[in-house]
Amino acid sequence: MPTFFEEKELVTPGDLLAEGEYMAGENTYRENGKIFAARIGLVEYENRRVRVVALRGFYVPRVGDTVIGIVVEVGFNGWEIDINAPYVATLRASDVLERGYRPQKDNLLSILDIGDLIVAKIASYDRGSNPRLTINEPGLGKVSRGQLIKVTPTKIPRIIGRKGSMISMIKRETNCRITLGQNGLILISGRKPEDEQLAIMAILKIEEESHTSGLTDRITKMLKKEKEARKNVQT
């Protein structure tokens, strides 16, 4: 039962990863007892499971994910939200109001208008129907301030880091509130625009170098250096 690559080696679609008693994990597929890569990424062999951590990909909704979306349409009994996925998500008025929706009295536009940004959770989704969102949880709802950036959705776990080590470090160093959407949209709001700039710099660097090792240390160093440099300019 051989494997054909080293741990964390860069693979491309069609690369033969393993043969025999292995299970095909994420971004791989199995054919005739052989496991191949389906995306460009880094291969990982975990026990009997082979998976590829994708470097390029798009967001596919999963129930329970926190996402950031933009209102693209206001309908009769709800909104349509662009969540940067192959499918447009819906948000129902009755879910937002937490009671029956009365078309004569309630004005949807006064709650959310086209172009508004929301933080939401995927409430339900399957192959047959488009995802449905909910904003009835603390921390969810309309976004009023901050900066929005877009990264490749497959790199969100890397930005979070092991047990949240990376993201909490960035939050600590830059004093920013950072909301990560699993769909690749990230909302950053800090007290000063410079803080936000610093956090954006760090996140874009992670996106660029997500496939390299020792990244948390490098980002910490970079943030400390940048902060020093900015202090010196001020004084």
């Binding site: 679609p13 069609g14 389906a38 995306r39 460009i40 390029r56």
Partner: peptide
């Protein structure tokens, strides 16, 4: 296609 991150059997 591979650059777009679309899952493929092979190039």
């Amino acid at each position: 296609l591979a650059d777009a991150g679309i899952p493929m059997r092979d190039l």
